[in-house]
Amino acid sequence: MFPKSGGRPRSTPASAGSTSTAPPTRSSRSESYEAEHDWLTIIRLPAYAPDLNPVEAVWSFVRRATVSTAFGTPGDLDRKLRRKLRRTQLRPHLIDGCLTATGLAVNPPTPA
């Protein structure tokens, strides 16, 4: 995602006082972007943490509905998935349970 110069990433110092020619890391870019925008709060999660991702729990409900089903066509599978997702959507207590199970705050903190 860095501007290209001659087919290679352009060297950009990591900070104003740095003599390094390495481009800034994603973390330092996001931290500086967050610092410049007081309306933004970035919550960092591990790269892959299914126990912290409420969507994984929702997909678990959907998988249970399709575990021992042979679908005749891709359309049959599509209809079954959409139906199960819609039923889950209509049961807010299931979604709340998925969020609660992660241990994450349902309402993120407001920036000070």
Rank of each mutant, 00 (worst) to 15 (best):
S32V: 04
T66L: 12
G75N: 04
A22H: 03
P46S: 10
R8C: 08
S5M: 14
L94Y: 11
T41R: 01
V62S: 14
L94N: 15
P109L: 09
Y48P: 12
H37E: 08
G103K: 05
I43T: 12
M1R: 09
R29W: 13
S30I: 01
D96H: 08
C98G: 04
T73C: 03
G72K: 00
R79V: 08
L40F: 07
A14N: 11
D96S: 13
I42W: 01
P111T: 04
G7M: 00
N53H: 08
V67G: 01
D38L: 10
L104D: 05
T102E: 12
I95S: 01
R10N: 10
I42V: 15
R79C: 07
K84R: 12
T88G: 13
R10I: 11
T19G: 11
V58F: 05
T66D: 10
G6C: 02
A16H: 15
T102V: 13
A57Q: 06
S18I: 07
V55R: 03
A35Y: 15
M1V: 08
R87Y: 07
T100F: 10
S15R: 13
W59G: 00
A47R: 05
P108H: 08
F2E: 13
S11A: 13
N53D: 09
L104A: 10
A35R: 14
R91Q: 14
L77N: 01
Q89N: 12
A35P: 15
P54D: 04
V55W: 03
R83W: 01
V62G: 13
N53E: 09
L94A: 15
P109E: 09
W59K: 00
T19L: 11
P54Y: 01
G6E: 01
T73A: 04
S60V: 07
S27H: 09
V62M: 13
G7K: 03
P3C: 09
T41I: 11
D51F: 05
T69P: 01
D78A: 10
I42L: 06
E56M: 11
L90V: 02
A57Y: 02
F61A: 02
T110F: 15
T110C: 15
K4N: 11
